[in-house]
Nucleic acid binder design. Structure first.
Length: 584
RNA sequence: GCGUCCGUAGCUCAGCUGGAUAGAGCGCCGGACUUCGAAUCCGUAGGCCGCAGGUUCGAGUCCUGCCGGGCGCACCA
C-alpha cells in the first residue's frame, strides 16, 4: 500500500505543477514526499485521499476547485482519481493489488510481516528479573509478555536479539525466607510436601512476615544472616544454594508454561559487586565526588535530577552501582547496539539516572540504552498489595483460566472435535492472558479481569483463536470436497465485496505495522490489527459463502482470501504469543 | 513541593506524522441458525474528547495555565 501511496504522491505532485500559476513556487513549497496522503473515512470514497487545503493559498483557488482540476490530470493504470469536495480520492485497481498481496503472504507464510527495518541491529533485552524469594505474580506476566513480544517484533524486523534475565538472588529479602526455613523448615522439601518449589520458598517468606509481626528481632536476624552470607559462611551458602535452586527451578516451570524463554541468565550474586571499580575510575576522572563519610556521589542537577549516591560509605554496592557494572560486563559479553530494560514504571527515574551516568562515563553504547516501562496491573477489586495478600499468583491464574476454558469447551460440547481437551484449554488460557496483557499500550495502567480475558466474545484472545479455527475448518472442508471445484481457476476480478478488499488492504499494511510496533515497542498495535482483521472476516463470512458457491472459480478465489488471512493471523499470533488452534 | 505519565460513551479502551459525520469491546434493549463452526453476526440507545485560553484554513491530536488521578523524587530493589 505504501508503494501505491508513493506512486500517487508523485502523480499528484506532477499534476499540481501543471495547473500552478507559478510552477517554480510549487516546487519550492512542496516535494512529492511532503504532499499529505490520507485514508478516506469511508472506504466507499476510495483508498487514498489527498486533501487540497494546503494548496489553496498558493493556487489562489478553493480546495474543491483544485481537486476538480486535478481529476483529469491524474491518469494512471493503477487506479483513478475522483474529486470529492476539497479532497482528491484515489480508487486503486483491485485485482493487481490482490495478486501482489496474496502472493507475498503465501510466499512468506507465518513469517509474513517480516521486514528489514532493523536489519543487523544487535539488541539485548532484559526482562522478567524476578526475586528468588517467591513465585511469579501477575506483574511478572505482563513483564514477560512484553519482553517476549518485543523480542519477536525486533526479530521480525531483522534485528539480532539476546533475551536476558537477571535473577535477583541476593539481599536481605532472600535471607528472610531462608531464616524462616531454618526456623520452621525441619528439613522439609518441595518434594516431601508436594508443593511447586518456588511456592515452597514463597511460603517461608510469608512465614517470616508473620513471625516478624510479633518479633521485632526478626529483621535484625535477617540482616545478620545477610552478613553471614556475604562473609561466605558455608552453612548459610549451602542453604542459600538449595533454596535458590528451588525458586529458580519453579520459575522456569512457569516460564515453560507461559512460553517464555531466555538466551542467557545473569545472577545478581555474580554481578552485584561489579560497578564499584567503574565508579572509582569515574571518581578519578573527576566525574563524581566523595563526601565526608566516604560515600561517592554524582551531581545530576544539570540534567534535571538530583544529587545521587553511587557507592555507600562502607564501599558496598547499591542498585545503581550494580546496574552500571552489569551494563559494562554485558557490553563486553555480547557487544550490543542497544540494551533495553523492561520494568515497571516505578523505575523510570532510576533508569534515567543510570543512562545519564553511563553517558558521563563515556561509553559509546550509552546513547543506545532504552527503557521500556509499563504501567501497573490492577485487579477489578483494586490494587494488588502484597501486604494484604491480594497479589495474583501467576501459576494460580493460569490454572484458573485453564479450568474456565475446559468448562467452556464442555458447555459447547466440543470435546469430540478436539483431540486433547486439556492441551487446547491451556492454549486458550495462554492466548487469553497474553492477548489481554498486550492489548494496551505498555505505559498504561491496566485492570486485568480474568473473566473478561477468557471470554470468547469481544476483543479477546479466544475470539481471535476461534476466528483462526473457523478458517482452518473451512480449509478442511475444502479438502474433503476438493474435486467439486476442479474446473475453477483463481480470478481476482471475482473479489468484488468491500470486506474482501478491506482485508487485502490490511494485509498490505501489515509489514509496515510490524516495523512501527517494533520501533515503538508497542504490541497493542498488533493486537488491534488482528482484532480488526478477525472482525472484518466474521462480518464477511456471515453474509458470504466461501465453499457454497456454484461458480468453482469464485470458491477457489475466495479460498485464497481465507488462506491469506489464516497466514496473517498465524504470523500475528506468533508475535503476541497467542497459540493458533486448528480446532477448539 | 518538584519530576513524569494519564484524563475520550455507564465500564474498559482505539483514534497513525493536526484534516471529511469521534470509533471498538463489555454491559443494556431488540433481532438473525433446514446452509461452510451462533464460542458468531446485525441493529437501537449512549459523547460540551477533564476545564479555560492560544497556534492554524482546520485541534481529541500541537502550546500554555488550571482541575483530578497513577507513579517516582532512599547510602531499598
Amino acid at each position: 500500500m505504501e508503494k501505491y501511496r508513493k506512486m500517487w504522491k508523485e502523480i499528484v505532485f506532477q499534476a499540481l505543477g501543471k495547473i500552478a500559476p507559478d510552477t517554480a513556487a510549487v516546487r519550492a513549497s512542496f516535494t512529492p514526499d511532503s504532499i499529505p496522503a490520507e485514508t478516506p473515512p469511508d472506504p466507499a470514497l476510495g483508498d487514498i485521499a489527498f486533501p487540497m487545503f494546503p494548496f489553496a493559498k498558493l493556487f489562489k483557488a478553493a480546495p474543491a476547485r483544485i481537486a476538480g482540476l486535478l481529476e483529469s490530470l491524474t491518469i494512471s493504470p493503477t487506479g483513478r482519481a475522483r474529486a470529492a469536495g476539497p479532497y482528491l480520492n484515489v480508487t486503486l485497481d483491485r485485482p493487481a493489488v490482490f495478486r501482489e498481496v496474496f502472493g507475498r503472504v503465501f510466499a512468506e507464510g507465518d513469517a509474513y510481516g517480516a521486514n528489514g527495518s532493523r536489519a543487523g541491529e544487535r539488541v539485548m533485552l532484559e526482562f522478567s528479573s524476578p526475586n528468588t524469594n517467591k513465585p511469579l505474580h501477575l506483574g511478572h506476566l505482563r513483564n514477560d509478555a512484553l519482553g517476549e513480544c518485543a523480542a519477536s517484533l525486533l526479530k521480525r524486523c531483522g534485528a539480532e536479539v539476546l533475551k536476558v534475565n537477571l535473577i535477583n538472588d541476593r539481599g536481605v529479602h532472600i535471607c528472610k525466607s531462608m531464616l524462616a526455613y531454618k526456623k520452621y523448615g525441619n528439613d522439609r522439601t518441595p518434594e516431601s510436601e508436594g508443593v511447586k518449589s518456588d511456592h515452597f520458598v514463597g511460603d517461608y517468606y510469608v512465614k517470616f512476615a508473620q513471625w516478624a509481626k510479633d518479633d521485632p528481632d526478626a529483621d535484625n536476624q535477617a540482616r545478620e544472616l545477610l552478613k553471614a552470607w556475604e562473609a561466605g559462611d558455608p552453612e548459610t551458602i549451602a542453604l542459600w544454594e538449595k533454596m535458590n535452586r528451588w525458586a529458580v527451578e519453579g520459575h522456569k516451570r512457569t516460564y515453560e508454561a507461559t512460553g517464555v524463554s531466555f538466551d542467557r541468565y545473569y545472577f545478581e550474586h555474580e554481578t552485584y559487586t561489579a560497578g564499584r571499580e567503574v565508579i572509582l575510575q569515574g571518581l578519578k576522572k573527576g566525574l563524581f565526588y566523595r563526601k565526608e563519610d566516604n560515600s561517592v556521589w554524582v551531581d545530576l542537577t544539570a540534567d534535571g535530577l538530583d544529587e545521587k549516591v553511587l557507592l555507600r560509605g562502607d564501599g558496598t554496592s547499591l542498585y545503581v552501582t550494580q546496574d552500571i557494572g552489569t551494563a559494562v560486563v554485558r557490553a563486553e559479553d555480547w557487544p550490543f547496539d542497544r540494551l533495553v530494560f523492561v520494568t515497571g514504571n516505578e523505575q523510570i527515574y532510576h533508569f534515567r539516572m543510570l543512562f545519564i551516568v553511563l553517558r558521563k562515563l563515556g561509553y559509546p553504547w550509552a546513547e543506545k540504552m532504552n527503557h521500556l516501562p509499563y504501567g501497573m496491573v490492577n485487579l477489578p477489586e483494586g490494587k494488588m498489595k502484597s501486604r494484604e495478600g491480594t497479589v495474583v499468583d501467576a501459576d494460580d491464574l493460569l490454572a484458573e483460566l485453564t479450568a474456565d476454558a475446559v468448562e467452556e469447551i464442555r458447555a459447547r460440547e466440543r470435546e469430540g472435535e478436539i483431540e486433547d481437551v486439556s492441551a487446547a484449554a491451556r492454549k486458550i488460557a495462554l492466548g487469553a492472558m497474553n492477548y489481554f496483557l498486550l492489548a494496551f499500550a505498555p505505559h498504561k495502567d491496566i485492570v486485568f479481569d480474568p473473566k473478561e480475558s477468557i471470554s470468547f466474545n469481544g476483543d479477546t484472545g479466544p475470539y481471535l483463536q476461534y476466528s483462526g479455527a473457523r478458517l482452518s475448518s473451512i480449509l478442511r472442508k475444502y479438502e474433503e470436497r476438493k474435486e467439486r471445484y476442479e474446473k475453477g481457476a483463481v480470478d481476482y476480478l471475482l473479489l468484488k465485496e468491500s470486506d474482501e478488499w478491506e482485508l487485502a488492504k490490511r494485509f498490505a499494511e501489515f509489514p509496515a505495522l510490524v516495523a512501527k510496533a517494533a520501533a515503538d515497542l508497542d504490541p497493542s498495535l498488533i493486537t488491534s490489527f488482528l482484532y480488526d482483521c478477525a472482525k472484518l472476516f466474521a462480518h464477511y463470512y456471515h453474509d458470504h459463502q466461501v465453499l457454497g458457491n456454484d461458480d468453482p472459480s469464485l470458491v477457489l478465489t475466495r479460498l485464497d482470501l481465507v488462506r491469506a488471512l489464516r497466514e496473517v493471523l498465524r504470523s500475528g499470533f506468533l508475535i503476541i504469543g497467542v497459540p493458533f488452534l486448528d480446532a477448539m
